[in-house]
Design a binder for these strands. Sequence first.
RNA 1: CGGGGCGUAGCGCAGCCUGGUAGCGCAUCUGCUUUGGGAGCAGAGGGUCGCAAGUUCGAAUCUUGCCGCCCCGACCA
Length: 438
Amino acid sequence: MRLSRYFLPVLKETPSDATIVSHRLMLRAGMIKQEAAGIYAWLPLGFQVLKKIEQIVREEQVRAGAVELLMPTLQLADLWRESGRYDDYGQEMLRIADRKKTDLLYGPTNEEMITDIFRAYVRSYKALPLNLFHIQWKFRDEVRPRFGVMRGREFLMKDAYSFDIDEASARKAYNRMFIAYLNTFARMGLKAVPMRADTGPIGGDLSHEFIILAETGESQVFCHKDLVEMGAPGANVDWDNLQGLVDQRTGLYAATEEMHDQARFEAEVPDASRLSARGIEVGHIFYFGEKYSKPMKAVVAGPDGVEKPVHMGSYGVGVSRLIGAIIEASHDDNGIIWPDSVAPFDVQLINLKTGDAACDSACQGAYEALTKAGKAVLYDDTDDRPGAKFATADLIGTPWQLVIGPKGLAAGEVELKRRATGEKTSQSLDAALNRLTA
RNA sequence: CGGGGCGUAGCGCAGCCUGGUAGCGCAUCUGCUUUGGGAGCAGAGGGUCGCAAGUUCGAAUCUUGCCGCCCCGACCA
């Protein structure tokens, strides 16, 4: 992509509305534009990142055995009356009436609808286990949206729903999502820590929030240091037998503010290993048994022919929120530092003197070579001054900057800069291209 | 939803107290010079001062109402 033909409205000055760093940088980098409180338009650069994140989430869901579908944003209120949540959900639910005065709502979540889909087709235990997910926009009319996309009213969310014949089987479904989440966040360059979450009226031990640590996190979290560095198990695991891996990650103390027990923390975790930090919730998994299947009569016949409500769980990932979370965890004074896996472009090609025949031709060659090698290149072919180009490149956080200028070319060299470390190396253009396409 | 604050050019702000020709910086456009870390000079364009009533000869400025947005708190993917 040539920058001169792209749409990248970067801001030199910080919009006064933004207070936290991710919000500020997303606005400055031309990723989003606020349209209303907690509602954002995704500009090309932001949209690109959103799609990258979405795709990673999708791939890891599929790997864990979930099947993708897509449910609508608007739902019938009657469905929610069946579960009793239409009246319980409160002001956060955006209620709408159509021209026939039918009560609708903009979905804040999809348990009712997925249960409705399930019960319409599934009658037998033989169809289980089943895990269906979609990635769709949700709306929650938050009292106080803030922090940009970290807490918007409209947000993109991946939600998966598992269906099992009994709790033992549901636990396996839960474990698959548990591991899938670790892998998902690791692929985005994040260290996510699973923490016990409140199971509410359902009870049990099957609810975890996945928290990434960042100074500007919304809540205080406490955990054993080793948990942070434990890393993700990766794709090559026995997906039918994950209890050991899960136990390993739930064995150490980890709790958010609400669940924190200082006495237990001090008893279980040695002084030197205690970590108290701020965290951002990027995922939440939950087993809720028959909560919806029972009132909504989503039943399957077991091997004995007896019909029983299915056991369900739901598993959410805040896709749009993740962008904010990643930036909170990865930036410096100059701008965003994208992990390679989610970067909107792989390489920013900077022509220091557009119009100079040697620079133009070297850049054009590099652009074509990189593009041919499958790299997403943002070619800064504008006639801005070098300083402005460097500033823009640092701001939008492209992992690699390939800098080509007249002085370097005269010496047979170009400069390659790694955004994350700031390390710059001079080398021949060929060597730089080899490095980038290796 | 409680408390606080803001709405003036695309962005950041001054002007409001004490009513009288709407300003500054950045950005934009034109020209010239410049080109390795957000260039310089000269010129130009761009605003029903959030909306609506009211007070007044006269309202960005005073009064009232409404709308929008932000921050702190309580609450959430």
